[in-house]
Simulated assay, not measured.
Amino acid sequence: MLWVIATITTAPGHDKDVLNALRDVAPTVRQEAGCQLYQPSQDHPEGLTADAPPRRDTVTVIEAWDSRQALDDHLATPHMTRFGEQTADWVVDRDIRLLTPH
């Protein structure tokens, strides 16, 4: 199994646009072969500690995939291509981490 933590930094004020686009595509992604988890999220408004306040203009997607092949197949789907095109003007940066759970 592989986990993905995708942190998306949006243009100011466009976090809800990206989040809504992710919510729209999420049911389709969850039906893909090898998808165990696909959860768009944002920082909790209270933050965890004073040293880690909630991030503005940030959306995080937490994912779990059966294999690298399942993840690669997901990235090549037409719905993810459409998502990328739809959100291109709203996304400033992406930090995508591929994790191996132990």
Rank of each mutant, 00 (worst) to 15 (best):
V91P: 08
A26W: 03
P40R: 04
R68Y: 08
G13L: 05
P27T: 11
R23E: 15
D57F: 02
P27F: 13
H44D: 09
A50M: 10
M1I: 01
H79D: 07
Q69C: 04
D51P: 05
D43E: 05
Q31E: 15
T87Y: 02
Q86T: 15
D24R: 14
D95E: 14
R55C: 05
E85G: 07
P54R: 00
P54N: 04
D72Q: 11
D89V: 10
T7A: 08
L2F: 09
D51S: 11
A26D: 04
T81N: 13
P12F: 11
G47K: 01
H14M: 13
D93Y: 04
D57Y: 04
M1W: 02
L19N: 00
A64M: 06
H79W: 12
W90A: 11
D51Y: 15
Q86N: 12
G84P: 00
A76N: 14
E46K: 07
D24F: 08
T100P: 00
T9I: 06
W65I: 05
L75A: 12
T49V: 14
D15A: 13
F83Y: 15
D43W: 02
T81Y: 08
L48A: 14
K16P: 04
T10P: 01
P12Q: 13
T49D: 12
D72Y: 07
L99M: 13
I96R: 07
T49E: 05
A26F: 02
P101R: 04
Q86S: 14
D73T: 13
E85P: 05
T81W: 03
T60D: 00
A26Y: 06
R82F: 13
R97W: 12
G47W: 04
E32A: 02
A76D: 13
C35Q: 03
T28R: 10
T49C: 11
Q31I: 03
Q69S: 13
Q69A: 15
A70N: 03
P53C: 07
N20H: 12
V61T: 11
V92F: 04
E85A: 13
I8Y: 01
A21W: 02
A64F: 03
Q31K: 12
A64K: 06
L22R: 00
T49Y: 11
